[in-house]
Amino acid sequence: MASAASATRSRAPSGPVKFLRSSIGAKSVMALTGLILTAFVFGHMVGNLQIFLGPEPINRYGHFLQSLGELLWLIRFVLLATLIVHIASAARLIVLNRRARPIAYVLDDSVQVTFAARTMPWTGMILLAFVVYHLAHFTLGTVQPELFSHHDELGRHDIYAMVVLGFQDWFVTAWYVVANALLALHLSHGVSSLFQSLGVTTPSLRWPLVDLAGPAVGTAVLIGNLAIPLASWLGLLELPYGAM
């Protein structure tokens, strides 16, 4: 009898809204969306590394993605929603956390926090700016429009030419280097952190597995992602037919 009464009582004010409003609910949403975004970043990197196999595979890959049609739009929609939810919960939690200490210490010190952990809101915000730039660059073609209209001999969008030529511009390459360094930093804390936020970390899992997962994923993404602009800029990827 007692359990029936308590069941109705605590179920009543509950629900998704209440869950999302609670600090741990919002944090778990951030961890889950962070995990989805990280999975995307990883897949995106692996797909793009096909550029080292030459123009044919990467252009075929791009053509394949375009041919997905409505499915591609569905994936884009889900990713965008994921990013928005991640940022919205981040913003809310950051505001709550700032409010929780209205008066700062005159002398503040810390014992063990990492630079990556401390800078999560800043690396995240610059990442958002980079995501917008990156979409304008290679998805919409508004950054370097002259490179966006190339087609290969099969009439497919010439991604190889667009990428390799695009990174001849030192400024573009430098911006990608900076953004990917910040992404690596964000992931080095974020990936380790999400296991704790979802409640799966135990002391024996934490060291070394979980604590090293973030830096490992961050480093892998840094190397994989930067290989492309740096190899292009250094002339390690052969410039396409009669360009520039």
Partner: peptide
Amino acid sequence: FGNCTNHYECMAVCPKEIDVRVIA
């Protein structure tokens, strides 16, 4: 109160050295 961003400063200063596994 604020919420955890997994900096683990709490565990570092805790006089009883409570492990952050309790947060998980």
